[in-house]
């Protein structure tokens, strides 16, 4: 029974972190967007515009939820959940600290599920999230939405392959698919983190994750100038808000996964810094990647669709396979 209560507490805490970060991420994204483009960003709501996201939330809440007559009602209503829920489930795989910690006299693992096939589970949930945009766009019965859905579907599955193959190098080095053990394999200072020996895999994984998240420079799915809003064209009110929310939660999850696989997860860069709790290290690494996503989004122009597919299929896929082969060779020699 205690275990069950501890599990519920952990789940609620993780959801609070993932959901609680989103309004601040949206606010800082808009603020940074302003700074990168020599503007001020939001300034009116609250001091320094800091209440902007909450204002947006209230506005979204009070908007009518429209379902077009031509749309496929049930699928249209359920599509945002399909994007939203897998993100949370991937969050259960991420370790926030060491196992078997003593907190208030209870023995707690600082991870929800130490799953032996964690990496596969994460990639499978990523594939599941593709259904959200595709079903939403198809059910809308709208030209823009259908085109956006097709584009995002093809883009997400293409980059999923490079992503999956880029991780194999790390798995060969760590000998495990469990995120907890991957972090343990990177113990003892930043020179043991996998982003140094697996630099190619790290870069491929990071760029592929931008494409998975449908963000600039790969946001072909909702290219405003040509497709209105892509698969979200027919959505309004809070149902649109769930799509948007889901994308930011996905960003949090993706940055957590990259930090865990390549940057040592909750481990400190130097051993004498271990006094600072692992949770803080993980969140600061996540914030670093989130800042990088924002920086890239507001700096680079969008790619054309054929360029996007060329990068995914003709450059990243062979590169990921070559990286895997070289890693395997080096490990068998050493």
């Amino acid at each position: 029974m205690t275990e069950f209560i501890i599990l519920i507490i952990k789940l609620v805490l993780i959801i609070a972190v993932a959901v609680g970060m989103v309004p601040f991420l949206i606010f800082f994204e808009r603020k940074f967007a302003g700074f990168f483009q020599s503007r001020m960003g939001p300034t009116y709501a609250g001091p320094w515009g800091s209440l902007q996201s909450f204002g947006d939330m209230a506005k979204l809440m009070s908007k009518e939820d429209l379902v077009p007559a031509a749309a496929d009602g049930p699928v249209f209503r359920i599509a945002p959940y399909i994007l939203f829920v897998p993100a949370f489930v991937s969050m259960t795989l991420i370790p926030f600290g060491p196992m078997d910690v003593d907190i208030f006299g209870y023995n707690v693992d600082l991870v929800v599920s130490s799953f032996d096939a964690g990496v596969i589970m994460f990639l499978a949930l990523g594939s599941l999230a593709v259904y959200g945009p595709v079903l939403g766009g198809w059910a809308s019965n709208n030209n823009w939405a259908l085109l956006g859905a097709l584009r995002s579907g093809a883009q997400m599955v293409s980059y999923e392959i490079s992503m999956g193959l880029a991780v194999v190098g790390v798995i060969v080095m760590a000998n495990t698919l469990n995120f907890v053990d991957i972090v343990d394999a990177q113990a003892g200072g930043f020179w043991n983190w996998f982003f140094i020996p697996q630099l190619v895999g790290f870069v491929i994984f990071f760029v592929a994750s931008i494409a998975e998240l449908n963000r600039d420079p790969f946001n072909l799915a909702e290219a405003e100038q040509e497709l209105v809003a892509g698969y979200m064209t027919e959505y309004s009110g809070m149902r649109w808000g769930i799509f948007m929310f889901g994308e930011y939660v996905n960003m949090v999850v993706m940055s957590a996964v990259i930090s865990t696989i390549f940057l040592g997860g909750w481990r400190a860069p130097f051993e004498f810094l271990d006094v600072i709790p692992g949770f803080i290290w993980l969140v600061s690494k996540m914030l670093f990647f989130i800042f990088l996503y924002m920086w890239i989004r507001w700096t680079l122009p969008r790619y054309r669709y054929n360029q996007l597919m060329d990068i995914g299929w003709k450059i990243f896929l062979p590169l990921a396979i070559a990286n895997l082969a070289v890693t395997a060779l080096i490990i068998s020699v050493v």
Binding site: L11, I14, M61, K63, F88, V89, T92, S113, G237
Partner: peptide, 24 residues
């Protein structure tokens, strides 16, 4: 673990949409 997490995630989304239905 996975089932509870999926349930809570879906419940968050459902609660947000239901609240907006009441307010809008």
């Amino acid at each position: 673990q996975f089932g509870l997490m999926a349930f809570i995630g879906a419940a968050v989304a459902f609660a947000l949409i239901t609240m907006s239905h009441m307010m809008s």
